[in-house]
Amino acid sequence: MDCESGADTSTRKRKLCRLVVLSFALLCILQATLNISLRLAFYSSDTTTTPDCEAIIKNLTKQQDMRMNELARYIQQGWIYFNHSLYYVSSTKNTWNDSREDCLQRGADLVIINSREEQNFIREFKKRTWIGLTDAEKEQTWKWVDGTTPTISFWDTDEPNSYEGTDEDCGEIFFYTRENSWNDQPCDSKNVWICEKKM
């Protein structure tokens, strides 16, 4: 059972809020810089731009605006931006399959961890969470929800192990205080989950 003090929860919420605000501010700065750079590049090099060139510039600006609006909408819904992906951390617990279904309904999937930076980012949530890793199709052949095999892994010592013969086909972050934090767990256990949507 996870017991958390009110102070820890409040501190975590403040840190998460700061991260969201900082991410949004950086994205706004990036958009403004891109808009200015594109306009300067196209207008300063040739003051007699053709209608086709002007259409391309307007289209690029419109696409950037749409992406920024989409990103802002996700952030307002509680998603967190990190390294070209959006992440959603559930506030309830569920089985691995039901957790994945929730992610799919949100237009995402359970998180796929492809780098040490992403692993450490996920650990910062300091929660036992489902990740998009399973060997349900073939025992000891771990695959991500997109069908790929892990190119990097962060299994804890002696994991995965199907503890005492238990059918543990789903991956989770369990030992989040250390980098090698992955554990195999029965899929019908209930955990918090993290969805990932590539941007």
Rank of each mutant, 00 (worst) to 15 (best):
M199H: 06
D158K: 12
K127F: 06
L133C: 03
C170Q: 00
M66L: 14
E4M: 14
C170F: 00
A25K: 12
P150T: 03
T177N: 15
E172T: 04
Q140V: 04
L30D: 14
S85I: 03
R14E: 09
Y88A: 00
R128V: 08
S23F: 06
A41D: 10
R106F: 02
L71E: 11
Y43Q: 12
Y74F: 15
T92Y: 15
L19W: 09
D102V: 06
G147W: 06
C17L: 15
L19S: 09
Y74V: 05
D188E: 14
E168Q: 07
S10I: 14
V111K: 01
L27W: 06
C28I: 12
Q76E: 14
Q77H: 15
V89P: 00
T157L: 12
L27P: 03
I122F: 03
W79I: 02
D98Q: 13
D65N: 14
G165L: 02
I36H: 05
R123A: 09
G171A: 05
I56K: 05
G165S: 03
Y43L: 13
G165F: 02
S5L: 11
K198P: 09
D146A: 04
C170M: 03
E124I: 03
L133R: 01
G107V: 05
E101P: 01
E164N: 10
I56L: 08
E124D: 14
C3A: 15
S10L: 15
L34H: 08
K126G: 11
C17M: 09
T47W: 07
N191C: 04
N35C: 11
T149L: 09
G171P: 01
Q185R: 10
T157C: 08
D65F: 11
E196S: 07
C17I: 09
R18A: 13
C103V: 03
C103Y: 01
I56H: 04
N191V: 02
K198A: 09
I122P: 00
E139N: 09
N69Q: 12
L40E: 06
F24D: 10
N114L: 07
Y74T: 06
N83F: 03
G165V: 01
E117F: 07
I122Y: 02
C170R: 01
D188F: 15
D109Y: 05
S37I: 06
T33E: 13
E101S: 13
E4F: 14
S37A: 13
I113L: 04
Q140F: 13
E4Q: 15
D46E: 11
W96T: 02
R123F: 05
G6H: 13
V89Q: 02
V192F: 06
T148Y: 01
P160R: 00
D8W: 14
C103D: 04
